[in-house]
Computed example of a mutant assay.
Amino acid sequence: MADSVISRGQAVVEQGSSPSASTYLQVGFFQSAIIRLIDYYHTPGSVCAEHKWEKYLQTSTDSIKPYLLNATKDASYPLDRLSTGKGLLHQFEEYHTSTASEALHSLRESINLQNKNALGGYWYFEYPNWSYLDGMYSLIPFLLTYTAHFDPKNESVTDDVIHQLDLLWTHCYQNESGLLVHGYDASKTASWASPVTGASPIVWDRSLGWYMMALVDSLDFSTPFPQRLSDYLQRRLVQLAESVISAADPKTGCWWQVMTFPNKQGNYIESSGSAMFTAALFKAARLGYLPEKIASEARKAAGKCYNHIVDAFVVKNENGTLDYNGTVSVCSLNSSASYEYYVSQPLLYNSVHGTAAFVHASLEHEMLENAEGSSRK
Rank of each mutant, 00 (worst) to 15 (best):
V5T: 11
G9E: 06
Q10P: 01
G16I: 07
G16V: 07
G16Q: 11
S17T: 15
S18T: 13
P19E: 10
A21G: 05
Y24W: 13
Q26I: 00
F30N: 03
F30Q: 04
I35K: 04
R36N: 10
D39A: 07
Y41K: 05
H42K: 15
H42L: 14
T43E: 15
G45N: 13
V47W: 04
C48Y: 09
A49N: 09
K52H: 09
E54H: 06
E54G: 03
E54V: 13
K55C: 05
Y56T: 03
S60D: 08
K65P: 00
N70P: 01
A71Y: 08
K73G: 08
D74M: 06
L89Y: 02
H96W: 11
T97Y: 09
S106N: 11
R108W: 12
E109C: 10
L113E: 06
Q114N: 06
N115Q: 15
K116E: 13
G120P: 07
G121V: 02
Y127E: 07
Y132P: 00
L133A: 01
D134H: 09
L139D: 00
I140N: 02
I140E: 01
T145A: 09
Y146A: 03
T147E: 08
E155S: 13
I162E: 01
H163V: 03
D166L: 06
D166A: 04
Y173K: 10
N175C: 06
N175A: 12
S177L: 07
G183R: 00
D185M: 06
D185I: 05
A186G: 15
K188P: 04
W192D: 01
W192V: 07
S194H: 06
S194L: 05
P195N: 13
A199F: 03
I202M: 13
G209C: 08
W210H: 14
Y211W: 09
M212F: 15
M213I: 07
V216A: 04
V216S: 00
F225Y: 14
L229F: 10
D231K: 13
Q239D: 11
Q239A: 08
Q239R: 11
I245Q: 03
A247S: 15
D249G: 07
K251A: 10
K251T: 09
C254D: 02
V258S: 05
M259W: 03
T260N: 12
N263H: 14
Q265S: 14
Y268R: 13
G273K: 01
S274M: 08
K283H: 15
E292N: 11
A295M: 03
E297L: 14
E297W: 05
A298S: 10
R299K: 15
A302P: 00
I309R: 00
N319F: 08
L322I: 03
D323Y: 02
D323R: 06
N325Y: 09
G326V: 01
G326T: 02
V328L: 08
N334A: 15
Y339L: 09
V343N: 01
P346C: 11
S351N: 11
S351K: 03
V352Q: 06
V352A: 07
H353D: 09
T355K: 08
F358H: 04
E364C: 07
H365C: 08
H365S: 08
M367Q: 10
M367L: 15
L368S: 06
R376I: 05
